[in-house]
């Protein structure tokens, strides 16, 4: 068994530098690598490019890195509820590449799977397709999209073992599995790290081969963006 365990977030992020490109899992604040983000803030590295579906909210998630102006460029599908993101984007302080959500996921999966590019119908005829090669297949038009290239992928899972195998919970899975193995180094943080053999191989979502470093994070905040409930009758 090849051990992927590291003892701390500091060790897990060894090698991150100014100007690098990072992938970060999560949808909104759900399933984000909270510990890796906090460490990036602490390290104070700058000029980074982040590939992440969203950019957190003003005071949590990637919003923390935006506040400190550590991010040079965001590649995301939805800005949504982050006012600071929208402000930096409209003022031109922040470079933003808005990418259709399915294309974003597939650009990760292509990088993970060794495909340099793929054709998708998403964005054909829109400004997303400007400057990109297009091609007709069976009477329908498609846009050529290239795989991402990234230095680190930071993902968050529910459980993981020493071999780097991962299991996710609920919709906290989202982009995390697509990003594993899609960067030069994949760092997984988990809520519960167990010895090899403790997880059922039948239930593994991401095999450890896609993960280089794994550590257990404690006290996850797991902030809820929209708390919607119904009343008991």
């Amino acid at each position: 068994m090849i051990k992927k365990t590291v003892s701390s977030v500091e060790e897990a992020l060894k090698g991150v530098q100014d100007g690098m490109t990072f992938m970060l899992g999560g949808f909104g604040l759900c399933g984000i690598p909270e510990k890796a983000i906090a460490e990036l803030v602490r390290l104070g590295i700058s000029d980074i490019t982040c590939i992440s579906n969203n950019a957190g909210v003003d005071d949590f998630g990637l919003g923390l890195l935006l506040q400190k102006r550590q991010i040079k460029k965001m590649i995301s599908s939805y800005v949504g509820e982050n006012d600071e993101f929208e402000r930096q984007m409209l003022s031109g302080e922040l470079e933003v590449e808005l990418t259709p959500q399915g294309t974003l996921a597939e650009k990760c999966r292509a990088a993970q799977s060794g495909f340099p590019a793929f054709y998708t119908p998403a964005g054909y005829g829109t400004e997303v397709a400007e400057g990109k090669e297009t091609r007709e297949f069976n009477g329908k038009m498609y846009v050529l999209e290239e795989a991402f290239k990234a230095d680190f992928a930071f993902v968050k899972a529910w459980k993981g073992d020493e071999a780097g195998n991962l299991i996710f919970k609920g919709t906290a899975r989202n982009f995390n599995p697509c990003m594993c193995g899609a960067a030069k180094i994949t760092v997984a943080e988990v809520e519960e790290l167990v010895p090899a053999g403790a997880l059922d191989p039948n239930q593994i979502h991401v095999p450890g081969i896609f993960v280089q470093r794994i550590f257990q994070g404690n006290d996850y905040e797991k902030r809820i963006e929209q708390r919607t409930v119904r009343k008991r009758n």
């Binding site: 949808f27 529910w158 809820i224 919607t228 409930v229």
Partner: peptide, 17 residues
């Protein structure tokens, strides 16, 4: 979900529990 049964790990695309 019923009040008190919200799970931060189970949301829809509108980020609602």
């Amino acid at each position: 979900p019923f009040e008190g049964e919200e799970d931060a790990d189970v949301i829809n695309a509108g980020k609602q529990t």
